[in-house]
Design a protein around this nucleic acid. Structure first.
Length: 223
DNA sequence: AATATCCCCAACCGCGCTGCT
DNA sequence: TAGCAGCGCGGTTGGGGATAT
């Protein structure tokens, strides 16, 4: 049995107060991010470290964009979701000032519905068709080296989409508002190079993560 | 104006990954 | 190599505001 991340009896839960926010901001300004487990005590907060980290990353961090997503941000999220599935942190990494939580919430509350209304299955980015098994071999877990976490979403099968596009009038209608010329993966010209903001000088450079996608360019993610 | 329902989003929870001993 | 601690991620929840009746 895993130990809880903190002694929950002594921690506040729920919405953060302005005083708590200020304590967290002050502490991180003078000591920097990190050591989340010991941070609450050091900062005089009755919160668990996880809660502090989340509050900082999702709300208090400087340079966060608040408010509505621009149209180009929406398009980018849809395209990246088609490629990466529910890898919200990777998707958010391509949207300056946006957090994974924000992107995830926006997807679930707006973009999912938008795709559904357009007749597109938001889980696999297909146009309302069941995907034959042999055409979804290159799923997210195969394409992106990571653990067994991803279970909700099949990435976009570009060859399937192309064949649909040739034969189905519905498709051009449904995808028109997504800018057809860029929505189809083979033409997608996304630079998905990702860099770690702060790498210590003594650290070895990480090996790029290779995303291989049938009929699509190889993508390298430096993480 | 009051009540019900819907929807958004901040926050929580559990689990996997990584690094250290 | 195993065990542990800490961090990060994705899924889920619930409070509260917005909207409908």
């Amino acid at each position: 049995m895993r130990k809880p991340c903190c002694d929950k009896q002594d921690t506040n839960k729920g919405a953060w107060t302005k005083q708590e926010d200020q304590k967290l901001i002050d502490y991180i300004r003078s000591h920097g991010e990190g050591c989340w487990r010991s941070l609450p005590q050091a900062a005089g907060l009755l919160r668990c470290g996880k809660s502090c980290r989340l509050r900082w990353i999702n709300y208090l961090r400087p340079n966060l964009k608040r408010g509505n997503f621009a149209e180009d941000e929406e398009d980018l999220i849809i395209k990246l979701h088609a490629l990466l599935g529910n890898r919200w942190s990777l998707i958010a990494g391509r949207l300056p000032g946006r957090t994974d939580n924000e992107v995830k919430n926006y997807w679930n509350s707006h973009l999912r519905r938008k795709l559904i209304n357009m007749g597109i299955d938001p889980n696999n980015h297909q146009l309302g068709r069941t995907i034959p098994n042999h055409q979804v071999q290159h799923n997210t877990d195969d394409a992106v080296s990571s653990g067994p976490k991803s279970k909700a979403c099949q990435p976009y099968a570009c060859d399937q989409f192309k064949s649909n596009e040739e034969n189905n009038d519905q498709i051009s209608n449904a995808t028109s508002c997504l800018d057809d010329s860029t929505y189809a993966l083979p033409d997608l010209n996304l630079d998905l190079t990702m860099t770690i903001p702060k790498r210590q000088e003594h650290e070895e450079p990480k090996t790029p993560m290779r995303l291989e996608h049938t009929n699509s360019p190889t993508l390298l993610l430096f993480i």
